[in-house]
Computed example of a mutant assay.
Amino acid sequence: MLFQTMLLALITSLALAQSEVGRPCGFKMAPCPFDMKCVPDNAYCPHPSRCPGHCEFKNKYDQCGGFTPRPHVCRRGSRCQDDPRLPPNCGMACDAPGICIPENAPFCGGFMGLACPKGLYCYDALDDCDPNNGGADCGGICL
């Protein structure tokens, strides 16, 4: 029961963080979530503590697929899939771009509670496992 509660708290905090892409930051506003950074809106003011900015993910991945004239194709060793860092939506099924995820992305969470390597964050693997519906040992991928 404790494990399920901890997992639910983690997933809830990730869901809140994921919906904050592009949220204003800087000055004395609330800081960006742990997997994001505050990027200044003005190149002449590089310090987010003194000027306005917006939240972006710390780790960048190439976009792929989607409804564009020339959709990007992932490099060898990566696969194109919906971005697990964003809130659930229809993603590439609705012609939104996905991201190129390394095929060797480390596994995290699950029954053993595996942590990600430093600099990577654990996200839901976008599979059929639902931690809110009997899937207490759902795992994720490190991005």
Rank of each mutant, 00 (worst) to 15 (best):
Y121W: 13
T68K: 14
M1K: 15
F34H: 09
L114K: 12
L143I: 13
F34I: 11
A136P: 10
I11A: 10
P87T: 01
D127K: 04
C129R: 01
N132V: 14
L143M: 13
N89M: 02
H72Q: 14
P31I: 11
I99E: 03
D124V: 02
D128W: 14
F3E: 12
Y61G: 06
G135K: 08
K60S: 08
D35H: 12
C38T: 04
H54T: 11
A115N: 12
P88M: 08
D128K: 15
T12L: 07
P31G: 13
N133I: 10
S19I: 10
G110N: 04
Y121T: 09
P87A: 00
V73W: 06
S78V: 05
D137T: 14
F3N: 14
A93E: 10
H47S: 14
G98D: 01
A9F: 09
M112C: 14
P31S: 15
G26N: 06
P40D: 02
C142L: 06
G113W: 02
M112L: 15
L126T: 08
D35T: 06
R75I: 04
L7R: 15
R79M: 13
N104T: 07
C25W: 02
L16D: 09
L16Q: 08
R79V: 12
L7M: 05
S49E: 15
F27W: 13
N59F: 11
R75Q: 12
I11W: 09
N104M: 07
C138R: 02
H72D: 07
G91V: 01
I101C: 03
G91R: 01
H54C: 09
A96R: 13
N89P: 00
T12I: 13
S19Y: 08
N133L: 14
F57S: 04
S19F: 08
